[in-house]
Each structure stands twice: as structure tokens, then as C-alpha cells.
């Protein structure tokens, strides 16, 4: 199949998935009770109510309501969330909180990649040696770790205990020290914003705040990457061209890093893309624990306060992110490895 056809086909295949995602969120909203509450809150002025009912077709039959729901989604009307201090349109909240979550997710991803790939390589090259066993337990522990508990433990040791012992400690909530610094959101990413303004102290303060939640979130992905890297490296090391490279008298080091690494990385890259869904799940729990003003905490609060628009918007957003990242992974994979296109 031609590359163009392949890309087109993947995009075409993603459309029904997005449609299904929208259907499910609508369906769930309908079961929860009253989709009206997504658009009309206690603070909605009386005068606006008939217009809202009209534009969402709440007096119409269900299929019409569904159609209008999609139309409104496309036009940017995702409802009004009541779980923040003042009622705000869902999309505004997402726009405001998205950078915090993404910044955290990206940093944890970077940590996971930097640590995970070397660990996987070491584990594979030292197969069945003590190092391998320790690495495997470490990785499996990451997959088995209740992330909320891990976060609490980090917080207890690195924040409370270090503080109590008079050691330098890591802050345990918020994105930066609000009392000391001002953050003017231009991009919303504090690390970038602070550099743009040239406020290097804010940059490091934000980094310190991010360290614990990012590591907490990154451990899961780290575990996944390590395991994938190990198994794909083992797979590649069995190949004939590696035996050839070894028989040419190349050192183990060159064989692994020059010849094997590139091929072993392909499946790992895929896993990195797919781990994004896991990161979003983790974000919900991590943000709750570290009081991180991102999407996850908003989602939890929405649920606890029965804010239908909030949970609906969050679910939809996360699903769209996952679909997009899967699509991107697919396309990258298809471009890197032409065999996939014929699958």
C-alpha cells in the first residue's frame, strides 16, 4: 500500500471511533439523569433558559437532541461546569487547566524515557544476572504500584519527614510558590513562561514543585518502557545480523548501541505513544494528591460534586487525546516500518 493511502486509511478509520466516543459520552450523560444540567446551572439567568432549551433541542425527540449535541460540541459549546469557583464554560476550563496537566505529563514522560531505555538495555544485556532480576522487579513494581499510595509516600518522606529533619525538601502541592512569585500565563506552561520572562528563580521553583508529581506519574510509564525495551532488545539480539556483527569482532558495546538499539527502539516508541492513556489515568490520581491545578483534579471534583458537564467534557477530551496519540503512533510506526502498511 502506498504511504498516502495508508495515512488516509488510518484517518478514515479514526472517524467512527471518534463518533463512537461522542455517542458513549452522550449516552452516559443521558443515564446520569439530566443532560439539561450540563447547560443550565443555578446561575444561568432566567432569560437565557428558553434559548438554551431551544438550541439543544430538549423539547425534541432523542435523535434530534443527539444531533444537536454533536453540533454544539463542534461549535465549541461543551456545557457549563459548576465545579469551579464560578460557573465557567467547559472549554474555557480545559484551555486554562490543560497546560498544567500536559506539562506534568511531558516531564514525567521525559523522566521515564531517560531512565527506562537504559534500564531496559542493561536488563537485556545482562539477562538472568542479578542486575536483570532487580531491574525486572523494579519494573514490575512500577506496574503494580498503586499510584495514589506511591504519591502519598513520596509526599510523606520527601516533604514532611525531610522538613521535620531539617533537610532540603520538595514542595508537595501547587505548581509554584504563589506567595513568592507571580506567574503571568502566556503559553500556560510555567517552565516556558518563566524562561520567556527571564525569571530563572521561578523556573527552578516550578521545577522543584513538579519533581515529585512528575516522578510519581513517571514511574508507571518508566516501568512500561523498561519492560518493553528489555523484551524488544532481547528479541533483536537474537537476530542473525547481530550474530554477524559480533562475529566481525565488534565489542558488545558497539553491537548493542550501533546495531541493536535502533531496531529495538521501534516497538518502544509505540509503547511510549500508547502509554499516554495510562498517563491520563495517572494524572487524575496524582493531581488529586499533589493538589495540582490540572484537568485530573477538576475531573475528580466534578464527579464528587455531580458536575455532569465537567465529567462529560473531561471524558471526551481524554478519549480524543488518546485517539489522536494512537493515530500519531500508528502513522509514525507505518512510516518507520513499511511492513506494517501491508498488515
Amino acid at each position: 500500500m502506498k504511504l498516502r493511502d495508508f495515512i488516509l486509511r488510518r484517518i478514515v478509520l479514526a472517524i467512527p471511533v471518534v463518533f463512537g466516543v461522542v455517542t458513549i459520552t452522550w449516552f452516559l450523560a443521558y443515564i446520569v439523569g439530566d443532560p439539561v444540567s450540563m447547560y443550565i446551572t443555578e446561575r444561568t439567568p432566567d432569560a437565557a433558559i428558553p434559548g438554551i432549551i431551544e438550541s439543544h433541542g430538549f423539547n425534541e425527540p432523542l435523535p434530534v437532541q443527539f444531533f444537536l449535541y454533536i453540533t454544539n460540541l463542534l461549535q465549541g459549546d461543551w456545557g457549563t461546569s459548576t465545579s469551579t469557583a464560578t460557573d465557567a464554560p467547559v472549554l474555557d476550563i480545559i484551555a486554562q487547566r490543560f497546560p498544567a496537566t500536559i506539562e506534568l505529563a511531558l516531564l514525567s514522560m521525559i523522566i521515564a524515557i531517560i531512565l527506562g531505555i537504559p534500564l531496559g538495555i542493561i536488563s537485556a544485556t545482562k539477562k538472568d544476572k542479578p542486575v536483570d532480576h532487580i531491574t525486572r522487579i523494579f519494573a514490575l513494581a512500577g506496574v503494580s504500584m498503586p499510584i495514589f499510595w506511591f504519591g502519598l509516600m513520596l509526599k510523606y518522606i520527601l516533604f514532611f519527614q525531610f522538613k521535620a529533619w531539617g533537610l532540603p525538601y520538595l514542595p508537595s502541592s501547587n505548581r509554584y510558590n504563589i506567595q513568592l512569585y507571580d506567574h503571568v500565563a502566556t503559553t500556560g506552561f510555567i517552565l516556558i513562561d518563566s524562561l520567556l520572562v527571564g525569571d530563572i528563580r521561578l523556573f527552578f521553583d516550578a521545577l522543584r514543585h513538579m519533581a515529585m508529581p512528575a516522578f510519581c506519574l513517571g514511574y508507571l510509564v518508566l516501568a512500561i518502557i523498561t519492560r518493553m525495551m528489555r523484551s524488544s532488545m532481547l528479541e533483536v539480539l537474537k537476530e542473525d545480523y547481530i550474530t554477524l556483527a559480533k562475529s566481525k569482532g565488534l565489542t558488545q558495546r558497539i553491537v548493542v548501541y550501533r546495531h541493536a538499539l535502533r531496531n529495538a527502539l521501534i516497538p518502544t516508541v509505540t509503547v511510549i505513544g500508547l502509554a499516554f492513556g495510562g498517563l491520563m489515568t495517572g494524572a487524575v490520581l496524582t493531581e488529586t494528591i499533589f493538589n495540582w491545578p490540572g484537568l485530573g483534579r477538576w475531573a475528580v471534583r466534578s464527579i464528587l460534586q455531580s458536575d455532569l458537564a465537567g465529567i462529560n467534557g473531561f471524558t471526551l477530551l481524554v478519549a480524543l487525546i488518546v485517539v489522536t496519540s494512537n493515530l500519531v503512533v500508528d502513522l509514525i510506526y507505518g512510516t518507520l516500518d513499511p511492513r506494517i502498511r501491508f498488515g
Partner: peptide, 24 residues
């Protein structure tokens, strides 16, 4: 396959959260 595709779009915890909320 299309239905499972849709389910795979939701990370486990997020979908479960939404369903719990729907069940009340």
C-alpha cells in the same frame, strides 16, 4: 472491532469513573 476501538479510546479509570457516575 469498531466497538472495542471506541472502548480503547478511554483509559480504564476514566471510563470507569464516568460509568460509576452514570450508575449513580
Amino acid at each position: 472491532m469498531r466497538v472495542t476501538d471506541v472502548f480503547f479510546a478511554f483509559p480504564g479509570l476514566v471510563l470507569a469513573m464516568a460509568i460509576v457516575m452514570a450508575l449513580g
